[in-house]
């Protein structure tokens, strides 16, 4: 319980700092998600996911981000329990003091967001970690290229028996692929399981990235999921509205000149960012 040795203000500042990092991350995430709306069969979105999935700087940030979420949650729970313990006997008459509405329910709005994150991770992030079965896609062009390379090797007699058999199996499988597994542009195989990817494209595709585009489309075709996502975005807005104001106060930023600006940023951010996220399920529900 080393945490006890930190001053209350230090703990608050740490909570705020982790929160600030999350605040910076959300617009990035939103920007990538909005690529889903482009009617390009998911090209932009796949490129963006590919960048986020492979770039090393992004990978470092991913770890920092996960740590921030976890530490923000742990600190929030710890501080809240301390706060409850500071008043062991409650008042009989509940407080009538007027206070900003959302400031009173941060642990609950935060808790809902945390539950949502678990669901969201199962839906997407764990697929990337291969903990959950997802959907995959592969570009015909790439598969073709690899296939031809191997065919040349075969002609030159550079493949052993096992490799030859694998190549034949792959050729058979791919020639019998059902038309549903091709996307509109005929450029990509979509809707594959990981086994199918290996079956059609060979072992070289073992580390293929999940096709979040198809997965998102499928997920939001389900009304229950869409509804859960939408409700959580409203809750997120509530959390963010108090969070940004609170962040400034915790970091000691309070001034006649810029405090009103921070108030405006709170409102804009807390409305626009969740709204941006909400457009995506709404789009898949009503437009697509």
């Amino acid at each position: 319980m080393k945490l006890i040795q930190f001053a209350s203000i230090t703990k608050k500042i740490a909570l705020a700092a982790f929160g600030l990092f999350l605040l910076l991350f959300l617009p990035v995430h939103l920007g990538i998600n909005l690529c889903l709306l482009r009617d390009d069969g998911g090209e932009w979105y796949r490129n963006a996911s590919h960048f986020m999935g492979t770039n090393y700087i992004v990978k470092v940030f991913e770890i920092v981000l996960l740590a921030s979420v976890l530490l923000h949650i742990c600190l929030a729970i710890y501080l809240t329990i301390e706060n409850w313990l500071a008043r062991p006997v409650r008042y009989k008459v509940r407080t009538k003091t007027k206070t900003p509405f959302m400031s009173r329910y941060m642990i609950w709005t935060g808790g809902i967001i945390a539950c949502f994150l678990v669901l969201h991770f199962i839906n997407f992030y764990f697929v990337k970690l291969d903990l959950v079965q997802g959907k995959y896609s592969a570009s015909i062009e790439q598969v073709d290229k690899l296939f031809q390379q191997k065919a040349i090797k075969l002609q030159q007699g550079e493949l052993n028996e096992k490799e030859q058999a694998a190549l034949m199996a792959q050729y058979q499988a791919i020639s019998q692929i059902s038309p549903e597994k091709m996307d509109k542009s005929q450029k990509n195989m979509v809707n594959l399981t990981k086994e199918e990817v290996i079956q059609y494209c060979g072992e070289d595709f073992k580390h293929v990235e999940p096709d979040f585009y198809t997965m998102s489309k499928e997920l939001f075709a389900n009304k229950t999921y869409s509804l859960i996502y939408l409700v959580v975005f409203v809750v997120l807005g509530f959390h963010l509205y108090h969070a940004i104001n609170s962040l400034a106060q915790t970091l000691g930023l309070s001034h006649r000149k810029y405090s009103p600006i921070i108030d405006w940023i709170s409102v804009f951010y807390a409305v626009l960012v969740p709204l941006g996220f909400a457009i995506i399920p709404l789009w898949f529900m009503f437009v697509k």
Binding site: A7, T95, T97, K98, T99, P100
Partner: peptide
């Protein structure tokens, strides 16, 4: 601040009930 913490007062959540009352 250290004394305040040690005595068992809670942490601020910037709810401002204090200011109102």
């Amino acid at each position: 601040v250290a004394k305040m913490d040690q005595l068992g007062f809670g942490n601020c959540t910037n709810t401002y009930a204090c200011e109102a009352e």
